[in-house]
Design a protein around this nucleic acid. Structure first.
Lengths: 342, 342
DNA sequence: ATGAAAGCGCTAACAG
DNA sequence: CTGTTAGCGCTTTCAT
């Protein structure tokens, strides 16, 4: 069933039917009702392709996720972010195009997306140090919102980000206040912007407290369970082991906890673990009884907000760049809880 | 840059340029080379929308993920599956459309996808008991492949599935062979097809060994860490607690482990945990030293295979339904390892 | 081997 | 308030 057929049935021109369906005011209310009823009755849906071609808007938004050629890790955070964004798209009539691109042909992929015109805008995921996509997208003239930021990009652009620096500064301070002096940082890969900011926050807090940073207590890698376990085991074997761990992801913190238990340390007594809780649906830190002390922010909310910002930008291309900073809260867990001073 | 402009530059008709670009044989080799060179030089990309409208094929595949109106959980497995599928799509020139639909307007969503013509085929995720999407998609005539199966659907259809029943039967047998007689099943929600099959495998193995199934040792819920923890705590408090746990997901198994440790049980001695390892990139069970004993299958492979099957179906609509059964292997972990008999 | 013309299904001036 | 016409960018007969 297409427009022409529907309009034939109604004895109207395709134009009038189109206008009625799209809510144009210059259609009599009676006609509109007739059209709406007929459309429903015949289960009519406009062809997305034809509509896109005619209007120049594809009503689709692209989510481009870099898959590193070296690290093939699929970010678990991605699923929840996308779920948040999808809510908004469903409400606003957008489709979501997912594109996983290897970073070695990243530029080609973005150029292609733009030239093929399959999306009206893009959400940029996982910005890294030396990020080149921002300039590229500006050049291509494709509206975009970055989830996170690119520290060394001086141009202005739309972003939605969690205040990672402040969150980690606060978490570090929390541990310092408890008396800890040897605090390990088990971070994500430090080419990722968020990891850079987290380390900055950690270092700031240490500096403020006059505690020197010890390179042996700082790790950065892909945030797997095994990584948490192995690096914790190594650090705990130092002559002066850490008394607390600040860990960039919940799953990695679980590995750290396993390592601590293996060497006979009791959580919340011999060692403290503080992590960041992305508040994922499948693995929430818990409300009543958090597993870990953690800084917490909702990835799903970030997805929702990013989608809303992007749609706003698409509708109003002239507007000034939008920046949305989400603050993380600190929640103190029971089982891993605040450890007594070093 | 569009076809017309490119053909003007070349002094050829759009027709010829189109033919050259799409590899039609009736173009002179010389012309083809000229066209190809010019296209590259001007960074020409055909408009996906125009092409779709003209050909009737959108070159896009839809992934439809149900979001339960009650349980808002975003399956962590989804991300890896999609990553596998994306590899194939990139290779074959398809785009990926992601659609998260609430189950209360599921039918509407599928009808819309079909009528709008935005996809050439669909991957159906998370089939459940009483699955209605299969009949619907058959009715709509949209090619599809189900990731998993629908136990109570008698019509034939394309599917790619892990042999969940056999995997859990094998895992249960493994525990029985070690001497365990009170084996708890911490399953996923048993409206999900995979959970139904896993329980079937578990019950089969018990029956074969003449061990009666105890309803108090069988749980089913969304597979979070907290669920694993809480249900394990409850079961461990029974007058006759389980000596082993068979857990449907790694993240839930972590919760079970936490519970066991809280009550002072030592893993691989006082209690055994066997789980299913979906072999996700961010949380692999480990090769050399698996954290848990587990049945293991690669979700990413499943995604790849499902995508390949679907593309085959789209290209060859007449063919007989394809069924691809993936077998899980049993890997014996060290830390949780084989526990001594009851 | 190349081109002209029609058409995919819709929207958007422009008329009336 | 409704209809006519052109056109979005491509593919695909049908001629030549």
């Amino acid at each position: 069933m297409n427009l022409k057929q529907l309009s034939d049935i109604l004895g109207l021109s395709p134009t009038t039917v189109s206008r009625a369906l799209n809510g144009y005011p210059e259609v009599s209310e009676e006609t509109r009702q007739r059209v709406l009823a007929a459309a429903r009755a015949h289960n009519y849906r406009p062809s997305a392709r034809a509509k896109a071609l005619a209007t120049g808007r594809s009503m689709a938004i692209g989510h481009v996720m870099p898959i590193s050629s070296q690290h093939e890790m699929m970010n678990p955070v991605f699923a929840d972010f996308v779920a948040g964004a999808a809510e908004v798209y469903a409400r606003e009539g957008y489709e979501m195009l997912l594109s996983l691109v290897r970073d070695d042909d990243e530029e080609r992929s973005y150029r292609e997306l733009a030239a093929r015109g399959s999306v009206d805008g893009i959400i940029v995921h996982a910005p890294r140090r030396g990020e080149r996509r921002i300039r590229l997208l500006h050049e291509l003239g494709l509206p975009f919102v970055v989830h996170g930021r690119a520290s060394d990009e001086r141009a202005d652009y739309n972003w939605v980000d969690v205040n990672n620096r402040r969150a980690f500064r606060r978490a570090t301070r929390f541990l310092l206040d408890l008396g800890h002096r040897r605090i390990a940082l088990v971070n994500g890969i430090e080419t990722m912007d968020f990891a850079i900011r987290r380390r900055a926050g950690y270092l700031e807090a240490l500096a403020e407290a006059g505690v020197p940073a010890d390179p042996r207590l700082m790790r950065a890698d892909e945030m797997t369970e095994v990584y948490g376990h192995d690096s914790a085991r190594e650090m705990l074997a130092l002559e002066a082991p850490p008394t607390a761990f600040l860990v960039s992801s919940m799953i990695t913190a679980i590995g750290v906890r396993r390592a601590a238990e293996e060497v006979g340390l009791r959580l919340g007594r011999d060692v403290s673990i503080v992590t960041h809780d992305d508040d994922l649906s499948y693995f929430r830190n818990g409300g009543d009884e958090p597993i870990f002390t953690a800084t917490r922010s909702s990835v799903r909310d970030a997805g929702r907000i990013a989608a809303e910002v992007l749609i706003g930008v698409i509708r109003n291309p002239g507007a000034a760049p939008v920046h949305r900073m989400l603050e993380a809260e600190l929640i103190v867990g029971q089982s891993t809880g605040p450890a007594p001073a070093g």
